[in-house]
Design a protein around this nucleic acid. Structure first.
Lengths: 150, 150
DNA sequence: GATTTCTCCCCACATCTACCCACAATTATA
DNA sequence: TATAATTGTGGGTAGATGTGGGGAGAAATC
């Protein structure tokens, strides 16, 4: 069982591109996961997405079921896999994020870390603000649909 | 099973932004919840809303079922989760409320804590008074609709 | 094989958190 | 009513946390 991530923090990259993972996001489940590694990918939104290793594996197992005889499946699997990097926290609870991933999300120094239930999102503050502004507000139809499951 | 919260109290933030939870709201259910943590979120009204952890989890578990490959789902989860903070009572029954949340609700020193059945509302007294004044009175139609379920 | 780059350990330290103790005021109990 | 327990509030302090930087070893490059 994975701990549910919630809340947000602001941290800073240091000169070595290391990012402290907030302590509350650093441990999960029953603590029996010895490594507590994350997989970081490029998100569908302009941010990085960090999955605890078990979550990433669950998702990846689903992907394996896609037929590789469909061009779009191959493309998706390829992209997913290329963009995934396994990152282990150092003894101070930091991960070293590849420059290419930082560039994708426009992260320079400041990082907003959002706990989004079973994954984390890493945002550049400005990019996040702009994204929130340009966001189409959730409309009544959406809430109608939500109401069906909530 | 969650105890039903009812009634209201007035407490004061101390210099460290700690708020005593009224004793009657501090324990719930069968007392078998070892941590007795709250999740505090920004309300739809200008106040903070505090859910006992089990209540928050019920809702959140449903949210986890939403696919993250729909943009609107991501937006909804992000908003919900960003504003949520898990707060554990210290041994004296107090929680440390983040400054940002206090600012959202305009809380400075005095706090009105309202038991609202399965959650608590935290109000700045002035904000609450103003909100009550500007409140649209409940009309007959509303009571007609209520009658359907009551 | 030698040199350079990268990774990750360690140490350091300011800040923040949450423990503990304390105590007055209130409520419960005998 | 007297006594005991609970509650709300204040404050000191040890430990946790976030950040910075040196340097040993691994990996990559020449």
């Amino acid at each position: 069982m994975i701990t549910t991530f919630a809340g947000e923090s602001k941290h800073f990259l240091d000169d070595k591109n290391r990012l402290s993972i907030p302590a509350k996001f650093r441990r999960w489940g029953d603590g029996e996961d010895p490594e507590n590694a994350f997989f970081i990918t490029k998100g569908s939104d302009p941010c990085l997405v960090a999955y605890p290793e078990p979550e990433w594996e669950i998702f990846t197992e689903k992907l394996k079921k896609l037929s590789q005889f469909k061009k779009k499946n191959r493309a998706f699997i390829r992209t997913w896999s290329r963009n995934s990097v396994r990152l282990k926290c150092d003894k101070q609870g930091r991960v070293l994020i590849p420059q290419e991933h930082l560039d994708f999300a426009g992260i320079k120094k400041e990082v907003i870390i959002i706990g989004a239930l079973n994954y984390l999102e890493l945002w550049d503050p400005e990019t996040l603000a702009k994204h929130q502004e340009s966001q189409i507000p959730l409309d009544d139809d959406y809430y109608e649909d939500l109401a069906d499951i909530l």
